[in-house]
Write a protein that binds this DNA or RNA. Structure first.
Lengths: 211, 211, 211, 211
DNA sequence: GATGAATGAGGGTTCATTCAT
DNA sequence: GATGAATGAACCCTCATTCAT
């Protein structure tokens, strides 16, 4: 494991994540980051080696891993497969909305992918998450509760895509429902709830025989 | 209307769109664009005024407008509301996949939005598309075919989000289904078909009373 | 003699003179001039050969030549030497204030002199004017009206320097005497009168034995 | 007060002042300055922020302030008003000739004034110097030694204008008096003496009742 | 370990001029 | 004769990084 980072380094990571999420990697200069963090510009190269490695460190620390969660779900004998899938859906929604800034960066980097190390991490993440989804759906199919012939990646795309696009259009959504005065926190809870119900409805419809 | 652009200008726009979609706006230098297009660096400022205005011109020309399409759908008396919605879904899928490069740029710019002119265009587009979706769903509700209490923006998020995320993970999808040898064109047709069926299923489930 | 210039060329010269006098030669681009004159940018090179030659043409046309005036003064038998000198002083004041824009350019170019052709013209002008001044003063000395041992260049410096510096600080002078409401034309007449009296007083004091 | 500048920064300022005085602000590129100073081009922005701010720094450091000098003159009880004025004249001559390069820049910038900060500094300087001149002349008038009805700005114009124009035509003056072989230093001493006598004569004539 | 100074490369843009028509 | 298109050079400035301390 990596050595623990100092508080200064952590603050630097946080500041960088914020700026990258607002202005993109190329649109953010190390000067911007250093100034916003109140430290010397040279520290970024000094602490992380380079601007690129700083980004990698952010990915290293913020990438979501659902493997353990899914393993526990599979072992769990108190929930039926649909309930397990619902739980995974909530985990995704929760995970993305809690890492809003990082997820915005991730969205950009999936397009502007130049750094091989980061490409690798994203590839690995996709594969891992895909396997998890597979495992959970195969389980439901084995138990006869889920339909056969499910296009699993497409189903994942709807989950991640809906949450991502909601993340991109949050402000619009807020205005649409005239919730401008609602507090940020409360709005986010509302959003989670709405997303949760919405996507679970979709999953139930697609996965079970009731379609 | 704007004066028509020369073929050189059009080629420049195309080259820029390609590079922006691969490396992002900030990651692409005017020298990159000029070299790739085989023209003089100064031509970009000469033709478009600035790198930013070049980007704006791309937005101006590639932004999708579904208003007319939706108006025609509403007037059409041969289709029922669900069929009309299906048609709109296909229009979206078609529209996004036909403008893959622009849509990737759009995704990034929704996050890294610094240019007020482009922010404005995106805002207007969201509003317009939202209105279109509204009109079509209200119609179905009036005819008693669609449920009340539909969170329309959320439904749009699923449509656009699913297509967008499919666009971002196309290669992964190809590998997952072992379609590496399939020709690009054919694969894209397949993707469109899959997306179409998948999203229509979702829309049917969410919109109609059969849920 | 040079061939006469077309009205377009003359307008171009005038526009250029105005801009050069406000922003300097290097601070004025051919685009600036062409736009201000409402003609095509390429015309400047086309008409004059280059931006430098355009400047030379301005010098060619606006440089003040007092030779003829002085010759007539010398021949004149109705004025005494001091009156003649007074007349020359007025000619200078008149000449500079009537060519305000050109004289401002001239002041700059005496410092930032890179163009050999223009340096040559300025040198010739200084020599010629100096000879004129000499001729007139020698005349007064011969007639016993002017003192010997007059530092003629220094006297010229006071004449030209005072008028030039007044030109540079016109606005300040206007404010100082609270003449902000005075019309431009009237103010200029006032300025000429003040300068005339002031410098004639100085010349009388320096030239004649009354000191 | 500003933090003291390093010797490199001072050398840069000096080099810049030299080049600006020979080729003007717009005619001098930051590359020119950096090369002449033997430093990296980026250092100019690094040290001063921009080429414009470098110019402002030169103005900040070289602008002449005669306030203190004049205050001391006013308090002095050993000199009569004319002697005080003579002293001020010498201070001006000395100040300008010692800052030959800066004064040439100043002359240009009074015409080509685009930078608001520098315009402000020049305006302030004019006002301050005008007040000083006022104070000293009022004193002489109060003591009955100077005439009433003196156009003070015009008198200042003669002082500054004569010195400035002498500065612009130094070389011509040298040739006129056949002093080509004279050493630079000695010539300058001569010039100062000539200017001093010349302008004092003028001031005496204009200020006192002997006219 | 930490930092201000300094760097070479490259950023977008504007320049005066020339070319093809 | 006159012009819009096009050019290569140069503009000032910012970049991420390294160096000396």
């Amino acid at each position: 494991m990596k050595p623990d980072l100092s508080s200064k380094q952590l603050q630097l990571l946080d500041t960088a994540e914020l700026l990258f999420s607002k202005k993109g990697f190329d649109g953010t200069s190390v000067r911007d980051i250093a100034e916003a963090a109140g430290i010397n510009t040279a520290m970024i190269s000094y602490y992380f080696g380079s601007k690129e490695k700083l980004m990698e460190e952010i990915f290293e620390r913020k990438s979501m891993n659902i493997r353990e969660k899914v393993d526990n779900l599979i072992k769990d004998e108190t929930m039926d497969p649909l309930e397990k899938m619902y739980s995974l859906v909530d985990t995704y929604i929760e995970g993305i909305l809690q890492r809003k800034r990082f997820h915005r960066i991730l969205l950009c980097e999936q397009i502007i992918n130049q750094n091989p190390h980061i490409i690798g991490m994203m590839e690995k993440m996709k594969t891992r998450n895909s396997e998890c989804m597979n495992d959970l759906i195969r389980l439901g199919q084995k138990k006869g509760m889920f339909r056969k012939n499910i296009d699993i990646p497409m189903l994942t795309n709807t989950l991640v895509g809906t949450v991502s696009h909601t993340l991109l259009t949050m402000d619009f959504y807020k205005n649409y429902h005239h919730l401008e005065s609602m507090k940020e926190e409360e709005f986010e809870r509302l959003l989670k709830k709405k997303l949760s119900v919405h996507i679970k409805n979709i999953y139930k419809a697609i996965l079970t025989h009731e379609l």
